[in-house]
């Protein structure tokens, strides 16, 4: 390359182009936030903060209360984590500590594949295959055996339709398991073999090695993975919309139908005729944005710490 061909102008241009587009990424997030805030102004002006604490959602009278959707979003996500995290942890332990390579490899690949399957597939399966089974087998049983118990009974009381908040939580759990497992497995493999071998050398059992060596070593990464899973569960739309039943009502029962933030938006946004209705849905979206932003930011901070730790 001769010196003549060196054109600093072009280099600066390319540099600025890549830099400008990077700023575009920042702008994108700011723009998303700005549009959501702008869209939610009408309903916030007309109803103020009562939007967030009222539980009355009625498009006919143009009154909107977001409390049921917000609470049920949190409940479905929590159900998903309560079921999904122990299962993911167990599978990750199986893949990294127990399984021989010829099992771990294909199971690992299968899990990565399943993490790639679009959520609408999980939703459809939930509606057509899981919900009927769940309604006839599990819900019958809970109706007969748990619902009559005095204090916790109402939590399980509902007609055995199969669809509802608990079903949505279970489908979400099934959906986030491959996702969390893949991340946990990657984190667990970063534990130096020497650490584990020394523990085994001292006479530790498998569980002691996992509990006392692997987990403490991977604390940041594990928490990060769980938080990313939570972020996914909170914002997931299609898997939930199919099976939650879409009813804006606060009820004590987790078996009954409900509505999450994302399922309300998916179900009602196109049909929202009044300005206030669509603004209320955008405000729900803004709420979801704020919640997931916090969760994802915490997740990233934990994962960042992991990166620094492994950088040493």
């Amino acid at each position: 390359m001769s010196v003549k061909q060196f054109r600093p102008g072009f280099d600066r241009g390319f540099h600025n182009l890549t830099f400008g587009l990077s700023m575009f990424v920042l702008l994108l997030l700011v723009a998303i936030l700005a549009f959501l805030v702008m869209g939610s102004l009408p309903v916030l002006k007309s109803q103020g903060l009562s939007f967030f604490i009222s539980s009355d959602w009625n498009p006919v009278t143009d009154v909107y209360g977001a409390l049921p959707a917000i609470i049920q979003t949190l409940i479905t996500a929590i159900i998903a984590l309560v079921i999904g995290v122990p299962v993911s942890f167990g599978i990750a332990v199986f893949l990294t500590e127990l399984a021989p390579v010829w099992v771990a490899r294909p199971v690992g690949v299968a899990i990565e594949m399943l993490a790639a399957i679009p959520s609408i597939i999980y939703g459809m399966w939930g509606l057509f295959v899981f919900a009927p089974t769940f309604g006839t087998v599990i819900q019958r049983w809970t109706m007969a055996n748990l619902a009559p118990i005095p204090v916790i009974g109402p939590v399980f009381a509902s007609p055995p339709m199969g669809i509802g908040i608990l079903t949505a939580g279970i489908i979400l759990a099934i959906m986030i398991v491959p996702f969390i497992t893949a991340m946990m497995r990657d984190v667990f493999t970063t534990v130096p073999a020497v650490l584990k071998e020394s523990a085994y050398g001292l006479g530790c059992t498998r569980w002691e090695v996992v509990h006392r060596i692997v987990l403490p070593y991977c604390r940041a990464g594990t928490v990060g993975a769980v938080m990313l899973g939570l972020g996914r569960a909170l914002g997931e739309t299609m898997a939930v919309t199919f099976v939650i039943g879409n009813s804006h009502r606060l009820s004590a029962s987790i078996m009954g139908p409900g509505a999450t933030i994302s399922s309300s938006i998916a179900n009602e946004f196109v049909e929202a005729d009044s300005k206030l209705h669509s603004s209320a849905l955008v405000t729900l979206g803004l709420t979801l944005f704020v919640i997931t932003f916090i969760v994802l930011a915490v997740a990233r901070l934990f994962l960042l710490r992991l990166k620094k730790q492994s950088g040493h």
């Binding site: 997030l29 723009a31 959501l36 914002g235 997931e236 998916a266 946004f269 849905l281 979206g285 990233r300």
Partner: peptide, 14 residues
């Protein structure tokens, strides 16, 4: 990274 895991329905609203 936040955009990467942001709920896709919000992108739709945007």
């Amino acid at each position: 990274d936040i955009l990467l895991s942001a709920p896709s329905i919000l992108i739709g609203l945007f």
